[in-house]
Computed example of a mutant assay.
Amino acid sequence: MSELRVGAHTSIAGGVSNAVDEQVEYGGNCGQIFTHSPQVWDHGSIEDSEADAFREASEANDIGPWMIHSSYLVNLCTPKEDLRAKSVDSMQQELDAADRLGVPYVNVHLGAHTGAGVDGGLANAGDALDELDVPDGVTILIESDAGSGTKLGGQFEHLAQVQSNTAHDLEFCVDTAHAWAAGYDISTPEGVAETFAEFDDVVGLDQLAYVHLNDSKHECGTNKDEHAHIGEGEIGYDGMKAFVNRTVEEGVPMALETPTEDGKSFAWNIERVRELHQE
């Protein structure tokens, strides 16, 4: 049986190596970070000593693989040249940071086509990705989206198409709350099996590198993205259990972006995932 790899999105406040300490506190053994505030373009800098400390602490505590989540401002699908240029520059800085930190993945949303159309937006994304210099040992992950408005990535076909539009070997991160919002019914073991089969047919399970594991506060197909505690949202206990166990079976790590509310935090959700895996 494959090893369960589950962790949380942790903070680099006070130094990037602090994310490792926070992950240990939660009981996680992999996870996700921002390298800077996701609401601004300014990346700041990571000192060599901090990068070394992050690598050493991760290895000492057997935490990995890590994933960097790109800025929320990045829009690869945009037809606007200034936004595209900023997005490419931001992504390049994330890739370079991943190389320095020994992080194998940089995760990004495709963004919104804002009138360019689905095909046009996905073509824009492919062109933007082709401008990036991806370091050896680092892979770009395209995250599945909830699909609201003109945002792309809600359908697995979008993921497959952007892969065909770029020279880079992309891999993918499926967010369970996003997939649910986009219309993939993963509330039952049968639905989970069908969703994995569809992903395999359209994209390829060998390209699934990470999962964002989140329950949802909204019904399937509403395109509403609001996360809930594992097993306590609309996806529910049976769906989350089936998804966890299939994900572990595929050898794919999971990062939580669950809320901190109702007296429950990342530590509670990580323990819930471990319980679901054991059952």
Score class of each variant (00 low, 15 high):
residue 20 V to S: 01
residue 46 I to T: 05
residue 192 V to Y: 01
residue 227 H to S: 04
residue 271 E to L: 11
residue 114 T to K: 13
residue 224 K to T: 10
residue 266 F to M: 15
residue 56 E to P: 02
residue 241 K to L: 14
residue 140 I to V: 08
residue 198 E to P: 06
residue 192 V to G: 02
residue 110 L to V: 13
residue 180 W to R: 05
residue 239 G to V: 03
residue 254 M to W: 02
residue 239 G to M: 10
residue 129 L to T: 01
residue 232 E to S: 08
residue 209 A to K: 14
residue 207 Q to T: 04
residue 103 V to P: 00
residue 63 I to R: 01
residue 32 Q to M: 15
residue 264 K to P: 11
residue 227 H to D: 06
residue 79 P to K: 05
residue 95 L to P: 12
residue 20 V to Y: 00
residue 242 A to E: 04
residue 263 G to R: 07
residue 196 F to P: 02
residue 261 E to L: 14
residue 266 F to C: 15
residue 137 G to C: 04
residue 161 Q to K: 14
residue 127 D to A: 15
residue 175 D to L: 10
residue 207 Q to N: 13
residue 236 G to M: 01
residue 233 G to I: 09
residue 145 D to R: 09
residue 42 D to E: 14
residue 47 E to F: 03
residue 75 N to F: 01
residue 32 Q to V: 12
residue 87 S to T: 02
residue 135 P to A: 00
residue 151 K to W: 07
residue 205 L to S: 15
residue 79 P to Y: 07
residue 267 A to T: 07
residue 104 P to F: 00
residue 63 I to W: 06
residue 213 L to N: 11
residue 258 T to Q: 06
residue 9 H to S: 04
residue 187 S to D: 01
residue 5 R to W: 15
residue 129 L to W: 03
residue 154 G to P: 03
residue 199 F to R: 03
residue 72 Y to A: 00
residue 146 A to V: 02
residue 118 V to G: 14
residue 229 H to S: 03
residue 76 L to H: 05
residue 50 E to L: 13
residue 226 E to D: 14
residue 196 F to C: 12
residue 128 A to F: 10
residue 150 T to W: 05
residue 130 D to A: 01
residue 206 D to G: 04
residue 217 K to H: 11
residue 41 W to L: 01
residue 234 E to W: 12
residue 209 A to S: 11
residue 261 E to P: 15
residue 114 T to S: 13
residue 272 R to E: 12
residue 22 E to R: 13
residue 20 V to T: 00
residue 8 A to C: 13
residue 53 A to T: 03
residue 255 A to R: 12
residue 151 K to R: 15
residue 225 D to H: 02
residue 178 H to G: 05
residue 182 A to V: 00
residue 138 V to A: 01
residue 183 G to I: 02
residue 49 S to I: 14
residue 202 V to M: 06
residue 217 K to Y: 10
residue 157 E to M: 04
residue 12 I to C: 06
residue 279 E to K: 07
residue 137 G to V: 08
residue 261 E to T: 11
residue 71 S to A: 10
residue 163 Q to S: 12
residue 148 S to G: 11
residue 37 S to I: 03
residue 102 G to V: 11
residue 4 L to F: 08
residue 210 Y to Q: 09
residue 153 G to W: 03
residue 61 N to C: 04
residue 149 G to C: 08
residue 277 H to W: 13
residue 20 V to C: 00
residue 202 V to D: 06
residue 82 D to W: 08
residue 9 H to W: 02
residue 241 K to N: 09
residue 69 H to Y: 02
residue 119 D to N: 14
residue 31 G to Q: 07
residue 95 L to Y: 07
residue 221 G to Q: 03
residue 127 D to V: 15
residue 234 E to S: 11
residue 255 A to G: 09
residue 12 I to F: 05
residue 216 S to C: 10
residue 98 A to D: 04
residue 197 A to E: 15
residue 11 S to P: 08
residue 78 T to M: 09
residue 246 R to S: 05
residue 181 A to Q: 07
residue 71 S to Y: 07
residue 124 N to Q: 11
residue 122 L to T: 10
residue 137 G to A: 03
residue 100 R to E: 08
residue 139 T to H: 07
residue 56 E to R: 15
residue 269 N to M: 03
residue 205 L to F: 08
residue 90 S to W: 02
residue 156 F to A: 05
residue 202 V to Y: 09
residue 34 F to I: 00
residue 16 V to I: 11
residue 204 G to N: 08
residue 102 G to D: 04
residue 191 G to I: 09
residue 215 D to F: 05
residue 62 D to S: 14
residue 110 L to F: 07
residue 76 L to E: 07
residue 51 A to I: 01
residue 236 G to W: 00
